Simulated scan of single mutants.
Amino acid sequence: MTTVNHRKVALDDVEANRRRGGDIRVTLSPKTVGSTSGFGGLLRLGAEEVVTEHFHPYSEEFLHIVTGELEMTLDGQAIRLGPGDSLLVPIGVRHRLVNVGAVDAVAVFHLSPLAPRPELGHVDTEQVDTDQPQLRVGNAQ
């Protein structure tokens, strides 16, 4: 018989990642729950806030909008998103997210599969806030 360990993670118990913009909280990851196939969490963007352009060379990104109005640019093509919309960002596609509404926007995200090493998971194609720490979703190596 297999033993299953359930692990609940509270949003407020996870450090915010602001390096690429917004408030990104990775709640379920190899680091937080020992996941082996992907990671996910919650993104909050204030009005006119941006998540800078980047891509994932190993992972697809799944995004589901809970509240607010967002615009995702995929390889230069803008796509408007609102509450209840979901979007798949394919592996290797440059993407940038902007809150185009007047209120906070909230989205749930998941990326899978994991990169071979955490530092290979994101490739930045736009300036990031280097004053913010680089948070890892995997175990520090």
Rank of each mutant, 00 (worst) to 15 (best):
Q127Y: 01
E48H: 09
R117E: 13
N5I: 13
D13N: 11
E60D: 15
G121C: 02
P116V: 08
R94G: 06
T125P: 01
Q132F: 00
D124A: 09
G40C: 08
V50M: 05
G22V: 03
G121T: 03
D23C: 04
A115I: 14
E15H: 00
M72A: 06
G68T: 03
E48Q: 12
V33H: 13
A16H: 05
G101T: 07
Q132S: 00
V103S: 14
N5W: 08
A47P: 06
G34M: 11
Q132M: 04
R117I: 13
H54R: 06
H122Y: 14
F62I: 09
S112Y: 12
H95G: 04
L87W: 13
L120Y: 11
A140C: 08
S37W: 15
L43M: 14
G22W: 06
V4Q: 14
D12H: 10
P90Y: 03
T3E: 09
F39E: 09
L81G: 01
V128N: 06
L45Y: 03
V9L: 07
R94A: 11
L120V: 05
L120F: 04
R80F: 04
D131P: 00
V108N: 08
F109S: 12
V123I: 14
P90F: 00
G138M: 09
G138L: 12
E61T: 10
V50Q: 15
R20P: 01
L114I: 13
F39M: 11
T2Y: 00
V137C: 05
V89A: 13
D131G: 10
V103D: 15
V128T: 13
D13Y: 05
L88T: 14
S59P: 09
R80G: 01
E60K: 15
G34L: 08
R117N: 12
L70T: 11
R19Y: 02
L42T: 15
H56R: 09
P57D: 14
L42F: 01
H64A: 15
P113W: 04
I79V: 04
V9Q: 12
T32P: 04
V100P: 01
E15V: 12
A78G: 05
L87K: 05
L28P: 00
A140Y: 00
T3L: 03
V106W: 08
E69R: 04
A140F: 02
G121M: 12
S29F: 09
E71D: 03
R18F: 02
K31Q: 15
T32W: 08
L81M: 13
T125N: 08
D124K: 06
I79L: 06
Y58D: 04
I91C: 11
S59K: 07
R44C: 07
V26N: 08
D124I: 03
V14R: 04
M1Q: 12
L74E: 10
L42A: 11
Q132D: 05
D12W: 02
A115Q: 05
R80T: 03
I79D: 09
D12P: 11
P83M: 10
V108S: 14
A105W: 02
T130E: 12
D131Y: 02
L135A: 02
P90V: 02
R94F: 07
L120C: 06
V98S: 01
A78L: 05
A107P: 00
G101S: 07
L81D: 03
G41F: 02
F55D: 15
F39G: 02
R7L: 07
Q134M: 10
